[in-house]
Simulated scan of single mutants.
Amino acid sequence: MTSPPPTALHAEPGQAPELLTVPQVMARLQLGRSAVYDLLRAGQLASITLGRARRIPTHALTDFIHTRLEQDAAR
């Protein structure tokens, strides 16, 4: 079984953004489950809820990373 090809962080116009699961975000940020949920609770990382499932749009993850980079650069 092969893994799917990497996708763009922002969806093309007319396409819905890719939604990531919490474990996928954990892997991309190399953080634990509690740390990711802390970011979600604090509003630092945007997400949507579909039923009981939490999903993070790729653009929200990208925005979070850019914001943190800018904050660190300002120090």
Rank of each mutant, 00 (worst) to 15 (best):
G43I: 04
R55H: 15
H59M: 04
P57N: 13
R28A: 10
L19H: 02
P13K: 06
P13H: 04
L50W: 02
A53L: 14
V22I: 11
P57E: 05
P57A: 09
L45T: 01
G32Q: 12
P13G: 07
Y37L: 11
Q30T: 15
V36P: 07
A27R: 10
T21M: 04
S47L: 02
L29A: 06
Q44I: 08
R41H: 07
G14M: 04
G14F: 06
G51Y: 04
L20N: 02
R52S: 14
H59Q: 15
H59G: 00
D38V: 01
Q30L: 13
R28E: 11
V36I: 06
L40N: 00
G14N: 05
A16I: 12
Q30G: 13
V22G: 03
L31C: 08
S34D: 11
L29F: 10
D38P: 06
R28D: 09
G14K: 02
V25F: 09
R33P: 13
Q24H: 11
R28Q: 12
G43A: 03
G43H: 02
P23C: 09
Q30K: 14
G14S: 03
R55G: 12
I48Q: 08
G32T: 02
L29R: 08
R55T: 03
I56M: 07
Q44T: 03
V36F: 03
I56W: 05
G51Q: 08
H59F: 14
